[in-house]
Design a binder for these strands. Structure first.
Lengths: 212, 212
DNA sequence: ATTCGTTCTTGACAAGTGTCAAGATTTTGG
DNA sequence: CCAAAATCTTGACACTTGTCAAGAACGAAT
């Protein structure tokens, strides 16, 4: 009987701890989301914890309560960002019933992303570059890169399938191609080049039938 | 006669000034080269002028004598870096007399670059990302990007020519593809992935005949 | 309602930052 | 050879940075 009580008590205690952990983690995500705002605005190099705090509803001390240090915070930001990013085109892939439909849906989302979420994406490129210097970022960054490659591959596979074909290149090559084009268009777009977005769309429209 | 003397004096003065300017600029390049060492090691975010000075034969004051501020120094570094980079494959393109020769020469240089100049290249990716935040970098970065695109295009054109064909993609798409592949391979290589280099070579070897 | 553990605020600290200026040193031109 | 201009050194400045600790505010369980 003592056994059962202990078992029950343990269960209750465990449940409580899980709950606390979840709450703790939810707060971490809240803070990470707030941090992403400032990071997207200033970039990794120019962003300090105090600046993050000032641009948010929190004080700088809270960040040190929830994160062991700055890298811990940024890693949490990156992981959180990932979840949002990777599913961006899943709707289009799931609902498109023809090559044209898929193409137009993809291009529309691509253009919208480039214009409305430029800040988040430049942060991604920033952090991916940081990972080349800071080993602490590498694991997460490589993981996200893999996820993005898979995302592109899903689009390409579906596009090929709708045409009764198979993709003509490897997942790595396809991802490299689209990522490179997007990165270049993003830089031009941020530099005020109005032609960046339409030129990206043209390029992708021309490319899709040749690679899948 | 007074006219002639003034004219001659002016010419001499001008020549002297040009000489001084050249000397001044040579020194700037020396300093930039020293700065590139530290920048390649630490990345833009973590590099301070004092650190640059300590890792070099100069004192930190000199850098402020030759550069108006930190951005000015970094811009000079980037411009200097460009000149070296853009001509890397020109020999191979000029001397190759067959597709195979060009392929092997290109791949050899590609592998060597990835392994021996990883630090300089991660710095390039770092600065290109910085340009998305810092407007002062954009002009130079976009210019270098264009030069690199042209470099890739020269290789692809020559490769196509040697096969009696024409490149199947636009310069932008080709550059995006190779740049994306290289960037990804660099990250993996820096993360200690021994397969990064051979996999890049395989991918490029497979890709070349399909895009040109 | 009181107590105890969690959460948050505030202020401080040491280290590091870019920038500048006064003066030492070297080079140059007459 | 000497004055003037350039190059360079040194040390200081005002400011920002990440980190931490002391304690206030809060919430939940007894």
């Amino acid at each position: 009987m003592a056994r059962q009580v202990t078992g029950a008590a343990r269960r209750v205690a465990d449940a409580a701890e899980v709950l606390r952990d979840e709450k703790f983690n939810a707060r971490r995500v809240e803070l990470a989301e707030a941090a992403l705002e400032t990071l997207g605005e200033l970039g990794f190099a120019r962003t300090s914890l105090r600046e993050i705090a000032q641009n948010s509803a929190f004080t700088h001390g809270v960040f040190h309560y929830y994160f062991s240090d700055k890298l811990d915070l940024i890693c949490c930001c990156v992981r959180h960002y990932k979840a949002k990013c990777v599913t961006r085109y899943d709707d289009v892939v799931a609902t498109a019933t023809s090559r044209d439909e898929l193409t137009e849906g993809f291009l529309a989302k691509l253009a919208a992303t480039l214009q409305n979420e430029a800040r988040m994406h430049r942060l991604w490129y920033d952090l991916r570059s940081q990972a080349m210097f800071e080993a602490a970022f590498r694991k997460d960054v490589l993981e996200i890169d893999k996820s993005l490659e898979a995302m592109i591959w899903r689009i390409a596979s579906r596009y090929a399938e709708l045409g009764g074909k198979r993709p003509a290149s490897s997942p790595a090559a396809l991802y490299a191609l689209f990522d490179g084009l997007f990165q270049n268009a993003l830089l031009k777009h941020l530099a005020g080049d109005k032609t960046a977005v339409p030129e990206l769309l043209d390029e992708v429209r021309r490319l899709l039938p040749t690679v899948c």
